[in-house]
Design a protein around this nucleic acid. Structure first.
Lengths: 173, 173
DNA sequence: TCAGGCATGTAAGTTGTTACATGATTAC
DNA sequence: GTAATCATGTAACAACTTACATGCCTGA
């Protein structure tokens, strides 16, 4: 799975600009995928050259013009090819867990601070995902709804585990 | 957080070879970090040149020689510098969640298959982590134990959520 | 007037993976 | 005999991030 596969998927049910794709990454996808503009724009150019998508420049009033991309038949085929390929493992790198693992070298206040920050982050993410869910619920496919509710459930359980962990850490102090 | 930071952390409480470091990544670290030999060996060379670690060649009977690395004072400083830097966000890319999000374009059997595979993977990971935990428990620092128990708790709750999700998906069939 | 949203793009650099190359030993 | 474990390393390539560059419009 590369950014190209995800972009193809997004263009499967509508035409979007690079800016709008980035917005999707930051809201609905935030829990399981992300890519920067430095990936999105060059990838869109490459995909256009390969004939997977076509570009249309849209004039807007009181806003900059935008390039809206439409998936082609070749693009749909490439997307289906990805969807039929073998499922890849999750890629996860958690700075928090790495630091916790090496926590013995630091004062306990550091460890507590890392936990508190992770908890705050998780709470913020849950709020954001819930708001996004309410906002787009009506236009989402059943699997998209499952995806978001799964994401919220995972984050809520992560939060509970972190809060428990923090309490246990603070107990002996 | 780069592989260098994690390798420094590993060398903080003992001397290890590249092969042994990879082994740690595949067992205790498997839930929150990983790196290939193609990263580990060049990184160790680079770190030696920078004076963060020193190399010692160990002769072994009926096994190939190994290069065991020891952290230097400069290495310890670099490690502490990392530990005192700002906490970075989790990096997560889930092929499973991406596919689930786009599941509307596939036959339901595919979605069910992805869920089943993810469940199997999760179960296998929990088993592996539990075995590793039992095996190294006695030599682990308190924060290392917290780290592993947190990891197991997160994976067990993820598993429950996936199993629930699968049942709900199968229900209308 | 100034921050934030809208909008696109490039260049340099970082980081990492995969595949290749090698080879002895051990347990089944 | 054959698969797994132990052990190190490189080269080619892939993928992505960060920082830079630009500029208009809107609302507080």
């Amino acid at each position: 799975m590369t950014s190209q596969d995800v972009i193809l998927g997004i263009l499967m049910d509508g035409n979007y600009s690079g800016y709008e794709i980035k917005h999707k990454f930051e809201t609905l996808f935030s829990y399981f995928y992300n890519a920067s503009y430095g990936t999105i724009y060059p990838t869109l150019s490459k995909m256009e050259k390969q004939g997977l998508i076509t570009k249309e420049s849209i004039q807007q009033e009181s806003k900059p013009n935008k390039n809206v991309y439409t998936i082609t038949e070749a693009g749909r085929e490439a997307f289906m090819h990805y969807m039929e390929s073998d499922l890849q493992d999750v890629e996860l790198k958690s700075d928090f867990m790495v630091r916790l693992f090496f926590g013995e070298w630091m004062e306990p206040e550091y460890v507590i601070q890392w936990l508190e920050k992770s908890i705050a982050k998780e709470e913020q993410q849950i709020k954001k995902l819930s708001v996004d869910y309410e906002r787009w619920k009506s236009t989402m496919s059943p699997t998209q709804e499952i995806c978001i509710t799964l994401g919220i459930a995972v984050q809520e359980s992560n939060l509970r585990i972190l809060v428990d962990g923090l309490q246990k850490l603070k107990a002996p102090l």
